[in-house]
Design a binder for these strands. Structure first.
Lengths: 206, 206, 206, 206
DNA sequence: GTTTAACCGAGACGGTACGTCGTGTCTTTCG
DNA sequence: CGAAAGACACGACGTACCGTCTCGGTTAAAC
């Protein structure tokens, strides 16, 4: 932390080697087949160098897969539906690879629900900022009367894609992203029941 | 299998004890903390009695948590939106309990993606029949021009609920089910962009 | 322990394989170079089977090297000196092999002094019975006025041989056993100072 | 080495702190429980300062325990037996402390037998000079016809004391040193079987 | 007075053994 | 043959230690 703490500093190449080896082995063997010893061997380092950085295997995997994930800036396509279409494609690109289901599942199982929630929230905030931008644009454009809760849209978009790909294992059928974008955009613009959901913009309890 | 096979028949109380002990221990220690030996000890039986019934720990957990789950008949509320509201509450009741995220995650991590998909499909088929019924009613009622793919609606509804509760850990905020039902119903009735997949990226004026 | 306790009984071939592999690897690599994993691999068993029997590596080595060591019956050569000569040769045969110094040293270092003393006492009792027999014969023969403490003779004989071979590393010079036997026999028969050491036959304090 | 080599000279307080910390921790935790890092921490120095002086942990321990041990000049008591009695007490003072068994054992286990022998020989030479002096005096005094091999007497005296205290863990019974001195002195003066090694196995009439 | 080279504390590094634990199979005795 | 008990082979886990190396910084002798 402190820039001038005593002792030999951590070798940044070791950090990178750990994360890289973790990603490679996750792709090769999956989450259940991943061992810390194999990561160390692949990275050409000792196990202690890993445990000096991450207390458990789960933390290491989380760092290797989630940390530093970048959400690109959304292009302004001119319509909410097309923006959401881009978002669906982006999310699919991030979590669509085979094996990601296992990784995310393993993290879900190994960390306590509260721990994973804490860890996820940081990551989720990035995506939500992007989503908020999309929703604000649509509001400014006049498509939406008021910006909905980005967390709500996030859960729907991410959840639907994850469930289809990794829970039901149904592959990335071509029209799925289209349907999803059309349905969510349409539903946000014309919610059934006509209830004006005013003021749920930031309600995220607990 | 055969009703009159030779030898001593399986003790049905053992079957029940295994499933019950599995559920209790899942609640106590979570999926990652669950061991077959602990289930056997809790059930007052031997490990062999478990492995005679289930080939792996995963099968046992699947049987204890998923198998036999009943999806109740949907009441005909008179509107798609209200039917989906009921569906959201039902799904929340089934997968909303704390720990379910860990169980599903663990299954996802331990089985290969394809295996979990196969196992899930049987379970999913039940829910999809229910969803199909809801969609057919809405079509007959005239709310929808044609019944959409139940698998699509299933992924959106289940995925959104699962993501909110177990991935982001945001609890069951009161309005969430309402918003979800309104948005999905509205989106199915009025998909943005007119008819599905007839060109996207083009601005549709608000 | 109990002949009819429940569960699968220990496999005696595993016991034997552990001890045999331990001895082989001690001879090959020495005490410091011995690993539990290597013993397991050599014996064709798992590590758990070893730790089910011995709590630590040291216990295993002790069992493999000390336990069940047999002290042969001493031939009645007709003189104390010749009997002690035989004893010196026997002890040399038991502890003279290269590597025994390391094994005994390792046990000395790893066990607490009190633990090794306890463990050793059981083994020492066997040798002491033999020594007591030799001394009793000499007394009956009239060579000695009263039988000295076997523990004293044991310490002198074993200690001298161990020190020469393993502490000073001076090899088994031919005449050493002769000199040792002559000196100890002579000293017991004619102790300098002429003090009649009456009644130190069994004094072994705490 | 060279008195005027360039660079900062070694800090002599560091030398002393290493040896002192080693001795303290040996007494506290024993040889097996001693770690180089703990010695460094206790001495308030870095590990590198230790390894700059000693190539291995064993060398450090050897230096801390054996090196510089002084064998005092033997008082001329006027009899071989009394001289050996003094020698026994002196050796007991040097190796009698609890923990010495573990230290010597550990060195025996970690160094190869030949290495420890080499290291020991330097130390042993000091004691042997003292023993040679005692034996020469006895010869001059007429107690012995010819001076025996000091190495032989060394092995017997040291070995017996070490075995009693550290192998059998029998404590320093009061009369033990007396018995040892009387027996060895008597045996050197009156070796059984007449002259050394002129046939054994033949009965020598009492 | 610089320069220079070895020193110093601190602690990260690669490597390796430890003892524990979990999985799924096998082997007993008993009912 | 089923069941309870528990031993079996295998192998990953996280901890600890060794001996080496790398920091930033200090200290005396050599220039």
């Amino acid at each position: 932390m402190s820039p001038n703490r005593p002792g030999r500093p951590r070798d940044e190449r070791v950090d990178a080697a750990i994360l890289q080896a973790t990603r490679v082995l996750l792709a090769e063997a999956g989450y259940a087949g991943l061992t810390v010893a194999a990561v160390a061997a692949r990275a050409g380092i000792g196990k202690a160098a890993i445990y000096r950085r991450y207390a458990t295997k789960q933390e290491m995997v989380f760092a290797a897969t989630m940390h530093g994930a970048q959400v690109p800036q959304p292009p302004d396509t001119g319509s909410l539906r097309a923006d959401l279409r881009w978002l669906a494609a982006t999310i699919t690109g991030m979590i669509g690879a085979p094996g990601v289901g296992g990784v995310l599942g393993g993290l879900l199982a190994d960390m306590e629900d509260e721990a994973v929630a804490t860890a996820m929230r940081g990551f989720a905030a990035l995506e939500r900022a992007t989503i908020a931008l999309i929703l604000d644009r649509a509001t400014a454009r006049g498509e939406l009367p008021a910006a909905p809760d980005p967390a709500f849209v996030h859960a729907v978009m991410m959840g639907a894609i994850f469930a289809r790909l990794h829970v039901f294992g149904e592959g990335d059928r071509e029209g799925f992203a289209d349907d999803l974008a059309s349905t969510v955009a349409g539903g946000l613009i014309h919610p059934a029941g006509g209830l004006p959901r005013q003021g749920d913009g930031t309600a995220t309890p607990g």
